[in-house]
Amino acid sequence: MVRLKDIAEKAGVSTATVSYVLNNKGNVSEETRKKILKILDELEYKPNQIAKSLKTRKTSTVGVIVEDITVFNAPEIIDGINECAEEHGFSILLTNLRLYKRIGNNFSNVDKCKHLITNAVDSLLSKQVDGIIYIGVHTRNVTGLISEIDKPLVYTYCFADSGYSVNYDDEFASFEATNYLIERGHRKIALISGLIDSIPAHERFNGYHKALMKHQLILNPSYVKTGDWSYESGYKMAKDLLQQKEPPTAILAMNDLMAGGVLEACRELGIQVPQDLSVIGFDNRECSLYYTPKLTTMDLPLRKMGAKSMEKILRLLNGESETIEMNTKLRCRLIVRESVSSPR
């Protein structure tokens, strides 16, 4: 193992000078700096990161706890975190809780898994991470799942009272999707909601309602159906809607899986999309590209959420807490494909 002493002797300088160059500090001439860097390269010197972290009490490592890595939102968020971390010389330690596998959509049971979360946090803190990012499996309030820690903590795809968070604006996204349908001439617009106890479902309903009110359209209760985020519920709710005496000319489904169920119901009933019915989904999942017709949908800024979460950690580490927005909401983007047209 190459030591600082070996480099100093070869360069004819003190070990302190070598240390200054390694840490980009001190008043070292450019000529000496270049000479030491050349020797470092020749000797293939690798700094002892463990010893350095013990001295500085920083590891340039961020812990990432993901509730379930198999859920569609997680990979892109993690990639955004990783990319931002690499750009700033940081690495990540990833822990997967597998909550969706354990409790599914029944988030009232999450307390049964709280010990897993506590163990994950304790494990990361024992590895001296500089901060922690917590990625939810579904947007909800997770206050109390993580006890107070003395490291920066940022939540994404979830939030906590008095905690830093990064999410997307569900209400505005639903408003934009509904407004797009209205601008295309639709007046009879139905909504297939997610689970009734879901915060995103509530916010997306609010956005839908606000768009109707903006254009002085009356909310028809028979056009609002509650699904459970599944393909099957989208299929069932669409059949109920499309067999009404006055069926809608457009359906906004609160996710792409339920929108796929809507398309299946249309095929069975002989309804052509978009000629007879326009359909918009939500999430821009990969399946939306392979439906027939290709699905118009709202794209979630998942990668940006990950990057923004990492940026908040970095700013907190730099002591900028007073200037950081507590709860950041990013805008979604409408992806126009083939499933919407003007009504006949």
Rank of each mutant, 00 (worst) to 15 (best):
8 A>T: 14
124 L>S: 05
223 Y>H: 02
225 K>D: 00
150 D>T: 03
225 K>F: 05
133 I>E: 04
202 H>Q: 15
101 K>M: 04
261 G>L: 02
289 L>M: 10
116 L>N: 03
21 V>E: 02
26 G>T: 08
103 I>V: 07
300 L>W: 04
101 K>L: 06
197 D>P: 00
171 E>Y: 12
171 E>H: 12
144 G>E: 05
72 F>A: 11
114 K>Q: 12
225 K>E: 07
180 Y>W: 09
120 A>T: 01
45 Y>T: 06
21 V>M: 06
87 E>L: 09
238 A>M: 06
64 V>G: 03
239 K>M: 13
198 S>V: 02
1 M>Q: 14
297 T>C: 01
229 W>Y: 08
323 T>Q: 09
147 S>K: 15
155 Y>W: 15
265 A>W: 13
37 L>E: 13
340 V>C: 11
190 A>W: 02
11 A>T: 03
145 L>V: 07
100 Y>K: 11
237 M>P: 00
284 N>H: 12
177 A>W: 03
282 F>R: 13
229 W>Q: 05
50 I>L: 03
234 G>T: 01
293 P>H: 15
328 T>W: 03
107 F>Y: 13
226 T>W: 06
267 R>F: 05
116 L>F: 07
273 V>H: 10
71 V>T: 09
38 K>N: 15
29 S>K: 15
107 F>T: 09
241 L>W: 01
131 G>C: 14
321 S>V: 05
74 A>H: 06
264 E>W: 09
300 L>S: 02
39 I>P: 00
299 D>C: 07
185 G>P: 01
125 L>N: 01
71 V>F: 01
37 L>A: 04
343 P>K: 12
304 K>Q: 13
26 G>A: 12
291 Y>K: 05
44 E>K: 15
248 P>G: 13
214 K>M: 11
281 G>W: 11
179 N>W: 07
298 M>L: 12
124 L>G: 01
228 D>F: 06
98 R>P: 00
286 E>T: 11
48 N>M: 11
62 V>I: 10
207 G>D: 04
31 E>L: 15
61 T>P: 00
276 D>W: 05
324 I>A: 06
177 A>S: 03
115 H>D: 10
162 S>A: 13
200 P>Q: 10
149 I>L: 13
108 S>V: 11
207 G>Y: 07
57 R>D: 00
227 G>K: 09
44 E>Q: 14
153 L>I: 10
100 Y>E: 04
141 N>W: 09
299 D>A: 13
